[in-house]
Write a protein that binds this DNA or RNA. Structure first.
Lengths: 353, 353
DNA sequence: TTGTAAGCGTTATCAC
DNA sequence: GTGATAACGCTTACAA
């Protein structure tokens, strides 16, 4: 009754003094354990007791304290999302979908931003260890291998999306980047293109490099050289910059595969506004990710769709399956990124992939 | 030593059996309290003890258990971000910035997705109450007033961004929507436009409606009518759809104020591709939010910049200031959204705002 | 400065 | 089915 535990209207309490199971027990005239059991899914409580407990809980505004519960149970219910540059369209979509499904599964997601490696990242990540997160999901981006190891060492289950940390333990989800690259080459050739180019970023993450290698290799099979340009980050401005380089050369490419959509948009705008080129008449363009903007009329970009729903489904399924003792058997999975055919390649609209 | 507490290489432990302060104390040859004090900022530990504790902690891979700490302390260190459609460019940027600054301030953010009102939202939100979050930040979007009340009732401090729940207690951050609308009207008039239109969504959130009212009122001052069209969500497709309506009429508008950038892009694409209109020669367009795409060459949209950094700074400052006892005095703040002048209004490039 | 002991709000074990 | 009691891992008086 002292120190602000006074109840206003029977519901709201002041001074951050929360209602505890003890309070509920007293009011309901039962024991703490009865209250606990009432809020534990696989319970063993008589209907009458449950009724009384629920009534008391309702009246007092009682919420189970997960902090305390997590102390006893092995699971905290927390899943940690580690991501850099999360306002990038593809990443934002992934984070949204993951969060949504996670909370449908009764989990709660903690967000760790790894934009800068200035120690604040490290601190934040350490935070989640402090909270005894059940698992971490590492999205593509900056986070380095040390982070993976740190999470792993603290006993978390880990999902790696589009990453390549060759550490044992995590579940890996990757895309068939090489296949996409080959499909692109063949689409370009069927459109009559002969001067192929590839726009990549300078960051050189594994999936980006896989796309580059696949593209160059597939072109080589047809005896074609590829002009490869790598610049900056995987952002719009890099694509635009690459356009400046590519189209200023005497031998202008007539087909460019950009390793992601953002760069493709920059490249398209560069080609159009800086060089007066038409797409797809003068130059064909293909991107990767199928972010929302790819469908906008100004771009109508032919690209490869990130199977976000599949990624999320697989992540959560793996997390759910391996809650128990069983040794994780499946270590990685390869998902298909289907081609989305729009208007940035000339000729027949015939998807192949 | 039993049940998997065996240490591998002195660092990694199996079976989720975490290292506790007790373990560290034993190894360092000190008491539990000494360990606790070592990890408490305002401590009172001798340098020597601290050294030994740190060494032992390092060797064992010890991390303070926040779940347990939160049980004693009043603060859990958790801040809850409630947001719907968080992959929308503006929201994603806000979430990123908030998360980043929050973790710089030593907090950790929990993400609650309120996309569907199917009870899963309610469950997720209830989750954060369970985790005793210190505060909640509600971004614009779906979450209804009941949610605000729920958070408030559980003793959380609350920040409302661009929302209008007329409940007492939260800190409100809003924009000068009306001013932006007036500036837009005067810019249109100076560009020689006479047939003004406004593209709004049908959701009718307070800030959106404020922009509409402000625009209509300002136009009225000059004796001008405004064609108002409301349709769908605040997305690209809605803008495009509105273009169909607007430009099919005999009296085509020569200036359109769109309540957000996404709709503006849709409207521009509709005007160009469906009606062959040129921007800004045939029709001037202004948006709101200044998302990344507004700077892309295909749009070069004149718009109003969401002061994201200011919003974040103010949110966190308020949260930090009101950790103590003091009655919150400042209840709300109004931020300025400066006009970003690009190329979607014809004539002199003279910002006014 | 340091150790001892008493909580914090749960859940799990075990008699009844 | 129910109620004591012992953890869980931490912080914090209080005493030394």
């Amino acid at each position: 009754m002292i120190e602000g535990r006074a109840l206003i209207g029977g519901i709201r309490q002041l001074n951050k003094s929360f209602v505890s199971a003890d309070d509920v027990a007293k009011r309901a005239g039962v024991s703490r354990s009865a209250v606990s059991r009432t809020f534990t899914p696989g319970a063993s409580v008589s209907d009458e007791t449950r009724q009384r407990v629920m009534a008391a809980a309702q009246a007092l505004g009682y919420h189970v304290n997960q902090l305390a519960r997590g102390l006893m149970r092995s699971e905290s219910g927390i899943v940690c999302l580690v991501v850099s540059e999360m306002d990038t369209p593809y990443r934002a979509r992934l984070v949204r979908a993951l969060t949504h499904e996670l909370q449908r599964a009764g989990k709660i997601s903690m967000l760790i931003n790894t934009d800068r490696s200035d120690g604040s990242v490290d601190a934040a990540l350490r935070q989640t260890l402090h909270y005894r997160a059940d698992a971490s999901i590492l999205l593509s981006g900056l986070p380095d291998k040390a982070i993976t190891k740190l999470c792993l060492d603290s006993g978390q289950r880990i999902v790696l999306i589009n990453r390549d940390d060759e550490i044992d333990g995590p579940f890996r989800i990757n895309l068939d980047d090489g296949h996409a690259a080959r499909v692109t080459v063949s689409a370009f050739l069927r459109a009559g293109c002969r001067h192929l180019a590839l726009a990549n970023s300078a960051v050189g993450t594994p999936s980006l490099m896989a796309r580059e290698r696949g593209f160059v290799a597939a072109a080589a099979e047809f005896g074609l050289d590829v002009t490869v340009v790598r610049h900056g980050n995987t952002v719009y401005e890099s694509g635009r910059k690459i356009a400046q380089t590519l189209f200023a050369e005497p031998k202008q490419p007539d087909a460019v595969f950009c390793v992601n959509d953002l760069m493709a948009f920059g490249l398209m705008d560069g080609a159009r506004h800086d060089f007066g080129l038409r797409i797809p008449e003068d130059v064909c363009v293909v991107g990767f990710d199928d972010i929302e903007q790819a469908a906008w009329a100004s771009y109508a970009l032919t690209t490869f769709s990130q199977p976000v729903d599949e990624i999320v489904k697989n992540s959560i399924a793996w997390l759910a399956n391996h809650g128990g003792e069983s040794q994780p058997e499946v270590r990685s999975i390869n998902l298909h990124a289907p081609m989305i055919w729009r208007k940035s390649i000339r000729g027949m609209q015939r998807p192949i992939s």
